[in-house]
Amino acid sequence: MKSSGGTELGRYLRARRAQVRPEDVGLPAGAGLRRTPGLRREELATLAGVSVDYYTRLERGRETNPSPAVIDALARALRLKGDAHERLHDLAELASGRLTEPHPTTESTVRESVQRMLEALRPLPAYVVGPYNHVLAANAPGRRLMPGLWDWPAEERNVTRYLFLHPVGRELYVPWEETVARSVAHLRAVGGRDPDSPALAALVGELVLKSPQFARLWDRYEVCERSGGTKTFAHPKAGLMTLTYEVMRLARTGGQRLITYQAEPGSADEEAMLRLDPAGRTARR
Protein backbone atom coordinates (compact mmCIF):
# COMPACT_ATOMS: atom_id res chain seq x y z
CA MET A 1 0.00 0.00 0.00
CA LYS A 2 2.11 2.85 -1.29
CA SER A 3 1.42 6.36 -2.42
CA SER A 4 3.40 9.47 -3.17
CA GLY A 5 3.61 10.00 0.60
CA GLY A 6 5.10 6.55 1.28
CA THR A 7 3.24 3.69 2.93
CA GLU A 8 0.46 3.88 5.47
CA LEU A 9 2.88 2.07 7.80
CA GLY A 10 5.38 4.93 7.45
CA ARG A 11 2.74 7.57 8.09
CA TYR A 12 1.55 5.71 11.17
CA LEU A 13 5.09 5.44 12.56
CA ARG A 14 5.75 9.15 12.02
CA ALA A 15 2.50 10.18 13.68
CA ARG A 16 2.97 7.96 16.71
CA ARG A 17 6.65 8.86 17.11
CA ALA A 18 5.66 12.52 17.37
CA GLN A 19 3.48 11.74 20.39
CA VAL A 20 6.16 10.11 22.56
CA ARG A 21 8.31 12.50 24.56
CA PRO A 22 11.88 11.50 25.49
CA GLU A 23 11.06 11.66 29.19
CA ASP A 24 8.15 9.24 28.61
CA VAL A 25 10.64 6.49 27.76
CA GLY A 26 13.40 7.40 30.19
CA LEU A 27 15.53 9.53 27.87
CA PRO A 28 16.86 13.00 28.70
CA ALA A 29 15.11 15.80 26.88
CA GLY A 30 18.47 17.07 25.64
CA ALA A 31 19.67 20.56 24.97
CA GLY A 32 18.33 22.91 22.33
CA LEU A 33 15.05 23.04 20.50
CA ARG A 34 13.67 20.04 18.67
CA ARG A 35 12.53 20.59 15.11
CA THR A 36 9.65 18.18 15.60
CA PRO A 37 7.74 17.07 18.70
CA GLY A 38 8.33 13.68 20.19
CA LEU A 39 11.19 11.27 19.66
CA ARG A 40 13.85 11.65 17.00
CA ARG A 41 14.29 8.80 14.53
CA GLU A 42 17.62 7.82 16.04
CA GLU A 43 16.12 7.71 19.53
CA LEU A 44 13.30 5.43 18.45
CA ALA A 45 15.66 3.22 16.48
CA THR A 46 17.88 2.81 19.54
CA LEU A 47 14.92 1.96 21.77
CA ALA A 48 13.68 -0.63 19.26
CA GLY A 49 17.14 -2.12 18.65
CA VAL A 50 17.29 -1.41 14.91
CA SER A 51 19.62 0.76 12.87
CA VAL A 52 18.72 4.36 12.16
CA ASP A 53 19.03 3.70 8.44
CA TYR A 54 16.63 0.76 8.62
CA TYR A 55 14.07 2.70 10.63
CA THR A 56 14.33 5.70 8.29
CA ARG A 57 13.63 3.43 5.32
CA LEU A 58 10.59 2.07 7.13
CA GLU A 59 9.16 5.54 7.68
CA ARG A 60 9.84 6.62 4.12
CA GLY A 61 8.30 3.50 2.61
CA ARG A 62 11.52 2.13 1.11
CA GLU A 63 11.52 -0.87 3.49
CA THR A 64 8.23 -2.77 3.41
CA ASN A 65 8.99 -6.16 4.93
CA PRO A 66 9.71 -5.77 8.66
CA SER A 67 9.60 -8.94 10.74
CA PRO A 68 6.97 -9.42 13.49
CA ALA A 69 9.78 -9.13 16.05
CA VAL A 70 10.78 -5.71 14.70
CA ILE A 71 7.16 -4.56 14.74
CA ASP A 72 6.77 -5.71 18.36
CA ALA A 73 9.96 -3.87 19.31
CA LEU A 74 8.71 -0.68 17.64
CA ALA A 75 5.36 -1.05 19.38
CA ARG A 76 7.08 -1.30 22.76
CA ALA A 77 9.24 1.74 22.02
CA LEU A 78 6.18 3.71 20.91
CA ARG A 79 4.17 2.47 23.91
CA LEU A 80 1.45 1.03 21.69
CA LYS A 81 -1.05 -1.35 23.23
CA GLY A 82 -4.26 -3.08 22.24
CA ASP A 83 -5.77 -1.84 18.98
CA ALA A 84 -2.83 0.48 18.31
CA HIS A 85 -0.34 -2.41 18.55
CA GLU A 86 -2.51 -4.66 16.38
CA ARG A 87 -2.88 -1.91 13.79
CA LEU A 88 0.90 -1.63 13.50
CA HIS A 89 1.06 -5.34 12.65
CA ASP A 90 -1.80 -4.97 10.14
CA LEU A 91 -0.08 -2.07 8.37
CA ALA A 92 3.20 -4.00 8.21
CA GLU A 93 1.37 -6.92 6.59
CA LEU A 94 -0.31 -4.58 4.10
CA ALA A 95 2.94 -2.82 3.25
CA SER A 96 4.64 -6.15 2.57
CA GLY A 97 1.84 -7.39 0.33
CA ARG A 98 1.32 -10.46 2.51
CA LEU A 99 -2.15 -9.27 3.47
CA THR A 100 -4.76 -7.67 1.30
CA GLU A 101 -7.94 -6.38 2.90
CA PRO A 102 -11.17 -5.97 0.94
CA HIS A 103 -11.99 -2.34 0.29
CA PRO A 104 -14.86 -1.12 2.44
CA THR A 105 -17.75 -0.41 0.14
CA THR A 106 -20.13 2.51 0.13
CA GLU A 107 -23.11 0.14 0.01
CA SER A 108 -26.14 2.13 1.15
CA THR A 109 -28.83 -0.55 0.96
CA VAL A 110 -29.96 -1.93 4.31
CA ARG A 111 -31.59 -5.35 4.11
CA GLU A 112 -35.30 -5.59 4.90
CA SER A 113 -34.54 -8.06 7.68
CA VAL A 114 -32.29 -5.46 9.32
CA GLN A 115 -34.97 -2.78 8.90
CA ARG A 116 -37.42 -5.06 10.72
CA MET A 117 -34.85 -5.61 13.45
CA LEU A 118 -34.55 -1.87 13.96
CA GLU A 119 -38.29 -1.60 14.51
CA ALA A 120 -38.32 -4.63 16.81
CA LEU A 121 -35.72 -2.95 19.03
CA ARG A 122 -38.01 -0.03 19.88
CA PRO A 123 -38.06 1.78 22.26
CA LEU A 124 -34.29 1.28 22.26
CA PRO A 125 -32.58 3.79 19.95
CA ALA A 126 -30.85 1.95 17.10
CA TYR A 127 -29.36 2.79 13.72
CA VAL A 128 -27.18 1.32 10.99
CA VAL A 129 -23.98 3.00 9.76
CA GLY A 130 -21.63 2.26 6.89
CA PRO A 131 -17.86 1.74 7.23
CA TYR A 132 -17.15 5.47 7.54
CA ASN A 133 -20.02 6.28 9.96
CA HIS A 134 -22.58 7.29 7.33
CA VAL A 135 -26.07 6.73 8.80
CA LEU A 136 -28.03 4.44 6.49
CA ALA A 137 -31.15 3.64 8.53
CA ALA A 138 -32.60 4.22 12.00
CA ASN A 139 -35.71 3.56 14.04
CA ALA A 140 -37.73 6.45 15.47
CA PRO A 141 -35.85 6.82 18.79
CA GLY A 142 -32.57 6.40 16.92
CA ARG A 143 -33.45 9.38 14.73
CA ARG A 144 -34.54 11.46 17.73
CA LEU A 145 -31.32 10.65 19.56
CA MET A 146 -29.39 12.91 17.15
CA PRO A 147 -31.53 16.04 16.64
CA GLY A 148 -30.85 17.92 13.42
CA LEU A 149 -29.00 15.11 11.65
CA TRP A 150 -32.10 14.24 9.66
CA ASP A 151 -32.44 17.82 8.42
CA TRP A 152 -29.35 17.19 6.29
CA PRO A 153 -29.59 15.51 2.87
CA ALA A 154 -29.24 11.73 3.04
CA GLU A 155 -25.72 11.80 1.59
CA GLU A 156 -24.52 14.12 4.39
CA ARG A 157 -25.88 12.14 7.35
CA ASN A 158 -22.60 11.05 8.84
CA VAL A 159 -22.06 10.71 12.60
CA THR A 160 -18.51 12.07 12.51
CA ARG A 161 -19.57 15.03 10.38
CA TYR A 162 -22.46 15.62 12.82
CA LEU A 163 -20.10 15.66 15.80
CA PHE A 164 -17.85 18.34 14.33
CA LEU A 165 -20.05 20.44 12.07
CA HIS A 166 -23.60 20.41 13.45
CA PRO A 167 -24.27 22.91 16.28
CA VAL A 168 -26.41 20.36 18.15
CA GLY A 169 -23.79 17.65 17.66
CA ARG A 170 -21.23 19.85 19.39
CA GLU A 171 -23.50 20.24 22.45
CA LEU A 172 -25.17 16.82 22.58
CA TYR A 173 -22.29 14.64 23.81
CA VAL A 174 -20.72 15.04 27.26
CA PRO A 175 -17.78 15.47 27.28
CA TRP A 176 -17.60 16.40 23.62
CA GLU A 177 -13.80 16.28 23.42
CA GLU A 178 -13.64 12.67 24.59
CA THR A 179 -16.43 11.59 22.25
CA VAL A 180 -14.88 13.12 19.14
CA ALA A 181 -11.44 11.71 19.98
CA ARG A 182 -12.92 8.20 20.06
CA SER A 183 -14.85 8.81 16.85
CA VAL A 184 -11.76 9.97 14.95
CA ALA A 185 -9.72 7.07 16.35
CA HIS A 186 -12.33 4.65 15.05
CA LEU A 187 -12.41 6.36 11.65
CA ARG A 188 -8.62 6.08 11.51
CA ALA A 189 -8.81 2.38 12.32
CA VAL A 190 -11.33 1.48 9.62
CA GLY A 191 -9.87 3.96 7.15
CA GLY A 192 -6.40 2.50 7.47
CA ARG A 193 -7.61 -0.56 5.58
CA ASP A 194 -8.22 1.54 2.49
CA PRO A 195 -6.64 5.00 2.89
CA ASP A 196 -7.22 5.76 -0.81
CA SER A 197 -11.00 5.27 -0.58
CA PRO A 198 -12.79 8.15 -2.39
CA ALA A 199 -15.54 8.14 0.25
CA LEU A 200 -13.02 8.43 3.07
CA ALA A 201 -10.98 11.07 1.23
CA ALA A 202 -14.08 13.21 0.65
CA LEU A 203 -15.15 13.03 4.30
CA VAL A 204 -11.69 13.67 5.74
CA GLY A 205 -10.99 16.45 3.24
CA GLU A 206 -14.17 18.26 4.21
CA LEU A 207 -13.60 17.91 7.94
CA VAL A 208 -9.93 18.92 7.82
CA LEU A 209 -10.95 22.05 5.91
CA LYS A 210 -13.87 22.98 8.15
CA SER A 211 -12.76 21.82 11.60
CA PRO A 212 -9.33 22.56 13.12
CA GLN A 213 -10.19 20.17 15.96
CA PHE A 214 -10.72 17.32 13.53
CA ALA A 215 -7.48 18.12 11.69
CA ARG A 216 -5.54 18.03 14.95
CA LEU A 217 -7.03 14.69 16.02
CA TRP A 218 -6.62 13.16 12.56
CA ASP A 219 -2.92 14.01 12.55
CA ARG A 220 -2.42 12.23 15.88
CA TYR A 221 -3.28 8.90 14.22
CA GLU A 222 -4.85 7.32 17.28
CA VAL A 223 -6.65 4.11 16.34
CA CYS A 224 -9.39 2.27 18.19
CA GLU A 225 -11.90 -0.32 16.99
CA ARG A 226 -15.15 0.35 18.84
CA SER A 227 -17.41 -2.47 19.98
CA GLY A 228 -19.36 -0.84 22.79
CA GLY A 229 -19.20 1.40 25.83
CA THR A 230 -21.12 4.27 27.37
CA LYS A 231 -22.06 7.75 26.19
CA THR A 232 -23.57 10.67 28.06
CA PHE A 233 -26.04 12.88 26.22
CA ALA A 234 -27.27 16.35 27.12
CA HIS A 235 -30.35 15.91 24.96
CA PRO A 236 -32.43 19.05 24.29
CA LYS A 237 -35.72 17.18 24.85
CA ALA A 238 -34.98 13.99 26.75
CA GLY A 239 -32.55 15.59 29.19
CA LEU A 240 -29.27 14.31 30.59
CA MET A 241 -28.79 10.55 30.22
CA THR A 242 -25.95 8.04 30.20
CA LEU A 243 -26.59 5.08 27.91
CA THR A 244 -24.64 1.92 27.16
CA TYR A 245 -24.21 1.00 23.53
CA GLU A 246 -23.30 -2.10 21.57
CA VAL A 247 -21.84 -2.25 18.05
CA MET A 248 -22.62 -5.33 15.94
CA ARG A 249 -21.18 -6.02 12.50
CA LEU A 250 -23.73 -7.10 9.92
CA ALA A 251 -22.71 -9.97 7.68
CA ARG A 252 -22.51 -9.58 3.89
CA THR A 253 -22.98 -5.81 3.98
CA GLY A 254 -19.60 -4.30 3.08
CA GLY A 255 -18.89 -3.00 6.57
CA GLN A 256 -22.31 -2.00 7.90
CA ARG A 257 -22.73 -1.92 11.69
CA LEU A 258 -25.83 -1.94 13.87
CA ILE A 259 -25.57 0.32 16.93
CA THR A 260 -28.06 0.06 19.79
CA TYR A 261 -28.44 2.00 23.04
CA GLN A 262 -30.03 1.02 26.33
CA ALA A 263 -30.13 2.02 29.99
CA GLU A 264 -30.44 0.30 33.35
CA PRO A 265 -34.09 -0.76 33.79
CA GLY A 266 -35.98 1.51 36.15
CA SER A 267 -33.23 4.14 36.21
CA ALA A 268 -33.50 7.87 35.54
CA ASP A 269 -31.40 7.25 32.43
CA GLU A 270 -33.98 4.81 31.11
CA GLU A 271 -36.78 7.25 31.88
CA ALA A 272 -34.98 9.91 29.83
CA MET A 273 -34.27 7.48 26.99
CA LEU A 274 -37.93 6.43 26.79
CA ARG A 275 -38.89 10.06 26.13
CA LEU A 276 -37.36 9.58 22.70
CA ASP A 277 -40.13 7.16 21.72
CA PRO A 278 -43.46 7.70 23.50
CA ALA A 279 -45.25 5.25 21.18
CA GLY A 280 -42.66 2.54 21.76
CA ARG A 281 -42.78 3.22 25.47
CA THR A 282 -46.53 2.63 25.58
CA ALA A 283 -46.18 -0.62 23.63
CA ARG A 284 -43.42 -1.78 25.99
CA ARG A 285 -45.64 -1.24 29.01
Rank of each mutant, 00 (worst) to 15 (best):
G142K: 03
S51E: 08
L240N: 05
R98N: 09
L27A: 12
G82T: 05
R79W: 02
V128Q: 04
L145C: 09
M241N: 08
V204F: 14
E101K: 12
Y245I: 00
H85Y: 03
G97P: 05
L207I: 10
S3K: 02
L217D: 01
E63Q: 14
R157S: 07
E93C: 05
R87E: 00
R157I: 04
V114S: 02
V114E: 01
T244I: 00
V159P: 05
R216Y: 06
R111W: 03
M241D: 07
T242Y: 06
L74Y: 00
N133R: 15
R275W: 06
D196L: 12
L149K: 05
E225L: 10
E156L: 15
L240C: 02
E222Y: 10
Q213P: 01
W152L: 15
M146Q: 12
L80Y: 03
R14E: 06
I259R: 00
W152P: 03
W218D: 10
V159I: 12
A263T: 07
R111M: 00
E177N: 12
D90S: 07
L187H: 09
Y132W: 12
L58F: 03
D151M: 11
L27N: 10
A73N: 04
A279P: 00
L200W: 02
T160C: 13
A238K: 10
L240K: 14
L258S: 02
A263M: 05
G228A: 04
H89D: 00
R284T: 07
E43W: 10
A251F: 04
H85N: 06
E101C: 08
N158C: 05
K210H: 14
R249E: 12
L47Y: 08
V70A: 09
R252E: 14
R17F: 07
Y132N: 11
G32F: 03
P66C: 09
A15S: 13
V204N: 10
R216K: 15
A283S: 06
S113R: 14
R285Y: 06
R35S: 06
R60A: 08
G61E: 05
V174A: 14
